[in-house]
Design a protein around this nucleic acid. Structure first.
Lengths: 214, 214
DNA sequence: ACACTAGTTTATCAGATGATAAATAAAACT
DNA sequence: AGTTTTATTTATCATCTGATAAACTAGTGT
């Protein structure tokens, strides 16, 4: 069977190194997000419309490419605005947390991000643990402090593991929405904001309520 | 360098097919949970102290072995007692949910289970989607019904996606505890029961509270 | 127009890996 | 004990896959 060359194939344009590297990295993120880290370099090259050895001009080993993908996904994902939002006591905590999760989810609850994140976590990548610790320190601990204030509790002692775990249930519960969507491919509400509002509202009211009596 | 045969090597006992198959399957679960689905058959055989071709006597292909692992992990994981616990209106909902999560977490929040579950999900395995739907139907929907009762709301209409998503935040939030522990290898509280109690209590109180005013 | 530079392809390797066939030996049977 | 059966190993294959080297050619400068 003869192959008809009727497809609109662009006359193989050459790219400048920096552009080609970016192009490869972009496609690699979406490729490995879909296929997992054991995705084959030849298949990635096919998607890019280039030959497999060309990858090795820009990334000496597959591991280097994967690391590029990880970096691209993990890097600069902590927006300094978030801490400001969370600690802005001129607004209600409900309001602040909803805005934070609106912004945070827009940044991270994406197909590529969620999946690469989970693949790297399963691989035991150091980068993942570092990120989780950073979230605890820069986001969850401040939320715990604000939560104390919201519940009318004193805030002298260090935020405990129990307090962190309590807020992790909300944080992880909302993250799990993205897992259900992008990893389980299950049915989820279209409007995530509504889910956030309800969950945050219930958590705040509930936590205040149970902090009162014992 | 000569190898000293000083190791206490048992004189290669033969197993009956059913025993050997079970032994392989048991080790395969823990092996693939750790290494992921791209774990090599030779390495698995090494762990078992057998040769790699022997695996193929019991499982014609690697895929068959993996499917055995999936089945072993997914099968019979839905305890009929759970539904009874959840719907037993002689007890407080707080009490019922805490007991359910105690039992549910003991059954599923295990290193092997959580990881194989996540690997299979990332592979887009049908088994995973089926399981998730089953959880929604047999566990989460009943909880939503009980939650309506708990909040003094009427329960005529069908449980909505919004209601499911709300309870998914709790369910996923608690599941996320296991993800943090077994996938992220992060620091978590020793006593999961305490986390459950607090989260369930806050959710129930909070949801009742926000169901009252609007 | 010619030569040079460097981005890209072609050809190929070496090791890994899933899988198979034949040889071996432990257990079971007579 | 001798024979048969079959669990297990040894040897090996075909293919895949990450990686390398050399050939090729589009673009650039003179």
């Amino acid at each position: 069977m003869t192959v008809r060359k009727t497809d609109t194939k662009l006359p193989k344009k050459r790219l400048r190194p920096e552009n080609r590297e970016q192009q490869i990295l972009d496609e690699a993120v979406s490729f490995f997000a879909e296929k997992g880290i054991s995705g084959k370099t030849r298949e990635l090259a096919d998607r890019l419309g280039i030959t497999q050895p060309l990858l090795y001009r820009y990334f000496p080993t597959k591991r280097d490419l994967i690391e590029g993908v990880f970096e691209k996904v993990y890097l600069n994902k902590l927006n300094p605005e978030w801490l400001k939002t969370i600690t802005d006591r001129d607004r209600t905590l409900q309001d602040r947390l909803c805005e934070f999760y609106r912004s945070y989810s827009a940044a991270t609850y994406r197909y590529d991000w969620i999946r690469v994140y989970m693949f790297s976590a399963l691989m035991g990548e150091e980068m993942n643990r570092r990120y989780t610790k950073l979230i605890e320190k820069e986001i969850l601990t401040p939320i715990c402090v604000e939560l104390r204030e919201h519940c009318g509790l004193p805030s002298k002692k260090r935020v405990s593991q129990a307090e962190l775990d309590h807020i992790w249930v909300l944080h992880g519960g909302l993250f799990y929405f993205a897992i259900r969507k992008h990893i389980y491919h299950g049915r989820v509400s279209k409007n995530f904001s509504v889910v956030v509002e309800r969950a945050v509202n219930a958590m705040l009211e509930g936590t205040k309520s149970i902090s009162a009596d014992p």
